[in-house]
């Protein structure tokens, strides 16, 4: 009876662990994919950090975790500074944007939210779908709208990549002219052979979301590797205590 119940409890917890309720297009993430995280950091600093801050994350923590900086080698600090710190911040500072609150209010109608916990507050799927759902719309102040969150205040931060790859999906027929312009733009940009090949939009967004997922929960890998050791130790101890229990209860008749 007792063994069956424990087994069922375990199955219950396992099913909770594996069940992942999601309604939108799912995203495949890998928190151990260091290259993806590093690319994500690059994209974030290039496309997002102008407006959005990561107020709970420090540059040096990011550097050490993503193996850009070595904790014991101060010369690597410069590598972090050169590649990811675009403001006057020190590497021990948290990642803050230089956008003034008043200006952001005037431009967007509300200050851009901090993104440290965006994945935990929404979900990785939410952010992924949101970033992929921009389309051209003349009626909006920035010329783009979002089909996932209607009339969003944010302009499309990845517009350059989208234009280069012609990845805007046109929802309205009135946008034909604009898309024509974009296709011209595409021809122009590709004629310049010295440019590196433009990345595919889905991959950029996946890397970005992967990076933001790491930012939302930076201790996750550490936690899970420690967890395996703790659980293993407990199982071993349980086995020995079980043998001891058998010994002690052996002389009690049923």
């Amino acid at each position: 009876m007792w063994k069956i119940s424990v087994f069922f409890l375990f199955i219950l917890i396992l099913s909770f662990t594996l069940a992942n309720p999601s309604k939108s297009k799912p995203i495949k993430l890998s928190s151990s994919d260091l290259a993806s995280l590093q690319r994500g950091a690059k994209y974030f600093m290039n496309y997002c950090s102008g407006c959005h801050s990561l107020q709970y994350m420090r540059y040096n923590r990011l550097g050490v975790d993503l193996k850009i900086e070595d904790k014991f080698d101060s010369s690597t600090q410069q590598r972090l500074k050169d590649n990811l710190v675009f403001t006057q911040a020190k590497t021990s500072d948290t990642i803050k944007s230089n956008l003034h609150k008043e200006e952001s209010l005037r431009w967007f109608g509300k200050p851009p939210p901090d993104l440290s916990l965006s994945i935990r507050a929404r979900s990785a799927d939410w952010v992924y779908n949101y970033l992929l759902s921009f389309y051209l719309d003349d009626t909006r102040p920035f010329g783009v709208n979002n089909s996932f969150i209607k009339n969003t205040a944010m302009p499309d931060p990845l517009a350059i990549i989208r234009m280069d790859t012609n990845a805007y999906h046109n929802l309205n027929k009135t946008n034909d002219q604009l898309s024509l312009k974009i296709s011209n733009h595409v021809i122009y940009s590709h004629s310049n052979k010295s440019r590196p090949p433009t990345p595919i939009l889905e991959e950029v967004v996946t890397d970005l979301v992967n990076f933001l997922t790491y930012i939302a929960d930076p201790t996750k890998n550490n936690r899970q590797s420690l967890g395996k050791k703790v659980c293993g130790f407990l199982l071993l101890l349980t086995y020995f205590v079980y043998i001891l229990k058998k010994q002690i209860w052996g002389n009690v008749k049923k």
Binding site: I13, R223, V230, C231, L235, T238
Partner: peptide, 12 residues
């Protein structure tokens, strides 16, 4: 110990 094992699975 069995409880701690299940609890650790949750916490970690």
């Amino acid at each position: 110990l069995i409880f701690l094992f299940i609890f650790s699975v949750i916490v970690f």
